[in-house]
């Protein structure tokens, strides 16, 4: 440790981060709990209402719909993206020549903004002119207005969500596979193991930590889905594709029910923390077992 005023220098070095963390994360975090216990329209001072917002939440059928849709989006996107990503990562790890090109092409949808992605799919799915319905027409299937039909709006958003998520899962899995020692596979080959056996008995178990990480981050990200939904369907029609964050934004910045929206945000936070805690529990159990 240094003497004199030098002792304070490290605090100056971390000051910008600590300050911004305090103002834009810590204070909002505490404030969200306070707001959730108040009625606040931004016109008057917050009015204390206790747990009223939470009991409203319990009886809000649209919010229930949003939670259900978010859960469906989670189930519908996370596992398929990861499975496809895993398969592709394995194909890519087979020492093929054009590895970099394939990797880039498959990952490309992941770097483009969600708004641009949404625009592309709005065209693909246009009921009259879009390629999807045209192609379906070729094989004799009557297409429909996928995004504006309550029966198909959410599933369609889910398919697009999968499309954008495959690349990331693939990249993470590929990095994991590349860190597995080649000698394991060679030894297995000597014993006459097939490609599938090697995949199942070597790759899959050794990818466990990455799988856990991917599952948790993709899960948390899927809980926050907003951009795609907002641009593609706006949560409609008739709330058929609305999600938790769509509801938060609607309640706060369109209806100015800040307190009520804050209660929804607290719910989302609790959900996120719950998943994170499970990750820690599984992660530390794995480490203890090794």
């Amino acid at each position: 440790m240094q003497k004199g005023w030098n002792r304070f220098i490290p605090y100056f070095l971390i000051l910008p981060n600590v300050l911004l963390f305090t103002v834009f994360i810590l204070v909002p975090l505490l404030w969200i709990f306070y707001l959730s216990l108040n009625d606040y329209t931004m016109l008057n001072a917050p009015k204390w209402v206790g747990l009223k917002n939470y009991s409203l939440l319990l009886n809000d059928s649209i919010f229930h719909q949003a939670v259900k849709n978010t859960a469906l989006y989670w189930i519908g996107t996370v596992v398929p993206s990861m499975l496809l990503g895993l398969v592709l990562a394995n194909l890519l790890s087979m020492r093929l020549k054009a590895l970099a090109a394939f990797r880039a092409l498959i990952y490309l949808p992941g770097v483009i903004s969600s708004v641009a992605v949404a625009m592309t799919w709005l065209w693909m799915l246009d009921p009259l002119q879009g390629p999807v319905n045209s192609l379906l027409g070729l094989i004799g299937i009557d297409g429909r207005n996928w995004l504006q039909d309550p029966a198909t709006s959410l599933p369609t958003v889910i398919v697009i969500g999968i499309w954008t998520g495959i690349g990331y899962a693939m990249i993470i899995f590929l990095a994991g596979i590349q860190s597995i020692s080649e000698s394991l596979y060679e030894a297995a080959s000597l014993d006459g193991a097939s490609v599938l056996k090697k995949f199942w008995y070597i790759t899959v178990p050794l990818l466990k930590p990455m799988t856990l990480f991917l599952f948790v981050t993709s899960t948390i990200r899927s809980f926050q889905v907003f951009d795609l939904v907002f641009v593609l369907t706006g949560g409609g029609p008739a709330n058929s594709s609305t999600t938790i964050v769509t509801q938060i934004v609607g309640a706060s910045f369109q209806e100015y029910r800040m307190g009520y929206a804050s209660a929804m945000a607290v719910f989302l936070l609790a959900l996120t923390l719950f998943i994170t805690l499970i990750q820690y529990a599984i992660g530390s159990r794995n480490q203890a077992g090794e």
Partner: peptide, 26 residues
């Protein structure tokens, strides 16, 4: 050093959408 660092790190888990309302008010 360590407590401050760990506190910052914990902030990483807070989704942007959760705190958008107070951030807007700030």
């Amino acid at each position: 050093n360590l407590p401050i660092f760990l506190t910052l790190l914990a902030g990483m888990m807070v989704p942007a959408q959760v705190i958008i309302i107070p951030q807007f008010l700030i």
